[in-house]
């Protein structure tokens, strides 16, 4: 019991308590203004949550996610405040919780392209890919109805699970290739893989919320996908799950990728002062020029 209390207390140092509102503001501002400025089909509203989770731990991450959505939904006036965000606090909590677990496992640590690291990255890619194959094959089990009803062309039979799995994996591979070949950092492979798993979990958790609270429609561009799946005969829950499995993993992969490089760009001294800071720092030689020069 004492161990548990110390584990909880360790995640809520004064520094973490100060970081949490900053992270909440980052979530809301990036989700509300930058996303609107760029008009991209991703949310960008969990960078702060993942940052706190990785640096402080699962509970701090979960609490940051939950509070961000509650504040965004219920304490800020329109047009910044958005009541559709509030019920997704549960999803945000799960994202923060998982980010904390990934942080404790050291998945956001920079790694050089050595043989051991590359083998580890390949194993991670295979495991994440297997999980994604299983999830997408289970979720998109009835492609025929979709094609017959939506495209109106029953002669073209595209296996939805394969198409959407390929789209998500394409984003995964592009991000991984960018990290390895342009940034020379294998560590990003783990972070992006963690983002993909987080995205799948977020989709599974948010689907019933979107279905029950909003009838599957949240006023965003992804509503068209939900409508298409419903036209294909899917139930409300199936339609929102399928939509989530397309947009959430991509969003969380990009978000994790951005957080990985944010952590890599911050000074080692700043990172090391957080409860999980040491786990987010590689050896000085692995950490790259900006971080190495700081110490």
């Amino acid at each position: 019991m004492d161990l548990l209390r110390r584990w909880v207390a360790r995640q809520f140092t004064t520094r973490v308590i100060v970081l949490m509102p900053v992270a909440i503001a980052i979530n809301i501002v990036l989700g509300a203004t930058i996303q609107q400025a760029l008009k991209l089909p991703i949310y960008l509203d969990s960078i702060g949550t993942i940052l706190v989770g990785v640096l402080a731990g699962p509970l701090a991450g979960a609490l940051t996610g939950i509070l961000a959505n509650l504040i965004w939904g219920y304490l800020l006036p329109a047009p910044v405040g958005s009541s559709t965000i509030g019920p997704f606090a549960i999803t945000a909590g799960v994202i923060g919780l998982l980010a904390g677990i990934w942080g404790q496992l050291g998945l956001f640590r920079p790694r050089r392209t050595g043989a051991v690291n590359v083998i580890g990255a390949v194993v991670a890619v295979v495991l994440v890919g297997a999980l994604a194959v299983y999830t997408y094959a289970r979720a998109y089990a009835s492609p025929e109805a979709f094609n017959n009803n939506v495209s109106g062309n029953s002669a073209i039979t595209i296996d939805q699970s394969k198409v959407f799995f390929l789209v998500v994996m394409l984003v995964y591979v592009v991000l991984v290739a960018w990290a390895i070949f342009l940034r020379r950092n294998v560590g990003a492979v783990y972070a992006i893989g963690a983002g993909l798993v987080t995205g799948i979990a977020a989709a599974v958790v948010s689907a019933p919320i979107a279905a029950v609270v909003y009838g599957g429609v949240t006023g965003s561009g992804t509503d068209a996908l939900v409508a298409a799946f419903r036209a294909g005969g899917d139930s409300l829950y199936q339609a929102t799950l399928k939509q989530g499995l397309l947009s959430d993993p991509m969003d969380k992969m990009i978000t994790s990728f951005v957080v990985f490089f944010i952590i890599g760009s911050l000074s080692r001294r700043f990172i090391a002062r957080f409860p999980n800071g040491e786990r987010a720092l590689g050896d000085e030689a692995e950490a790259g020029a900006p971080a190495a020069s700081e110490s």
Partner: peptide, 23 residues
Amino acid sequence: RARGIVPLAAPVVFGALTEVEER
């Protein structure tokens, strides 16, 4: 537009994080 994520998000994030030490 996607190339704008980092130039827009990074200054917001780093700008906000500079307050953490002082606070």
